[in-house]
């Protein structure tokens, strides 16, 4: 038996502030579903968000919640989790939030393998500030600060997280609601730093600036660009061009930071 996902949302705060067609609502709904399916006690959950469109998700959870500063949600969460290992701490971040201004905190959280669940709402653009270039904007794509097309290379968040030491890494899109739920559940259940990257659509800026104005068109675009991981492995380099692998990249056991710290305390006190 699962709980009703609405138990985990401040439904009285709806409708949310996101633009029509935005994928953030889908991801937030999926996280609530994951919490319901895991039947977690809402009072054992803390949701922390940063600044940006994604940060607004922190206002929607019927749990303890903190809307922190830009890029720092993971660092706030690190303090909270160390102080309160009993809590399930979920961090909702945008791509600019997590990988731009907060990139340093993100890689160090991966390295420490601290038991947090990071859900990255990756819309490849800065939405809240008006459509500026993100560290995840694909090359040649336009933003208000790359009006002639992006000349930089974007981060591959999943690969970055794995290289930095995260122990659960998965990627999907806002097209696949059940898969977001599944990955978030797996991430929360996993002991260690879990990264769930969800590629999502920003019709207002990314779409408008890149001739993809229709949200449903953008969703189909996300679906057609992505390939399940096992299929991707079978593809030739030529076939892989322009394709993004999705799925569960990594799920491995490695000493978790908070547990290791308190084990050290026990040793110190008994020794």
């Amino acid at each position: 038996m699962t709980r009703d996902y609405r138990q985990y949302l401040r439904v009285e705060k709806l409708p949310h502030v996101w633009c029509p067609g935005c994928g953030h609502g889908i991801i937030t709904h999926a996280i609530a579903n994951a919490l319901a399916e895991l039947q977690l006690d809402p009072d054992t959950i803390a949701v922390l968000g940063g600044i940006g469109c994604s940060g607004r998700a922190s206002f929607l959870f019927q749990t303890d919640a903190m809307h922190t500063t830009h890029g720092r949600a993971v660092a706030f969460a690190t303090g909270l989790k160390l102080a309160r290992p009993d809590l399930h701490v979920i961090v909702v971040m945008g791509d600019g939030d997590a990988l731009g201004i907060g990139g340093n905190h993100f890689i160090h959280a991966c390295r420490r393998n601290i038991d947090l669940t990071a859900v990255i709402y990756n819309n490849a653009i800065y939405g809240q500030t008006g459509g500026q270039l993100a560290p995840t904007t694909p090359t040649e794509k336009r933003s208000t600060t790359s009006p002639y097309g992006n000349v930089e290379h974007p981060f591959d968040i999943a690969r970055l997280a794995m290289a930095a030491g995260a122990t659960y890494v998965a990627r999907t899109t806002s097209f696949d609601f059940p898969e977001i739920v599944r990955f978030v559940k797996r991430g929360i259940a996993h002991k260690g730093f879990s990264v769930i990257e969800v590629l999502t659509q920003c019709p207002t800026y990314y779409g408008r600036l890149n001739d993809l104005r229709d949200p449903s068109q953008m969703l189909y675009e996300l679906k057609s660009q992505t390939v399940p991981l096992d299929e991707y492995h079978q593809m030739t380099p030529e076939e892989r061009a322009g394709k993004i692998p999705i799925g569960e990249f990594l799920c491995e056991e490695r000493a978790e930071f908070v547990e290791s710290y308190y084990r050290l305390c026990q040793l110190g006190r008994s020794g």
């Binding site: 922190t68 660092a75 690190t78 102080a83 710290y261």
Partner: peptide, 26 residues
């Protein structure tokens, strides 16, 4: 560690004050 408290060196001072605020709310 001897009193069961936390002392952690973080990646920078921004993370440090962030974690302090997070812990305080804990």
């Amino acid at each position: 560690p001897k009193v069961g408290g936390v002392c952690v060196q973080l990646e920078d001072e921004i993370a440090s004050i962030s974690a302090v605020i997070g812990a305080s709310w804990g």
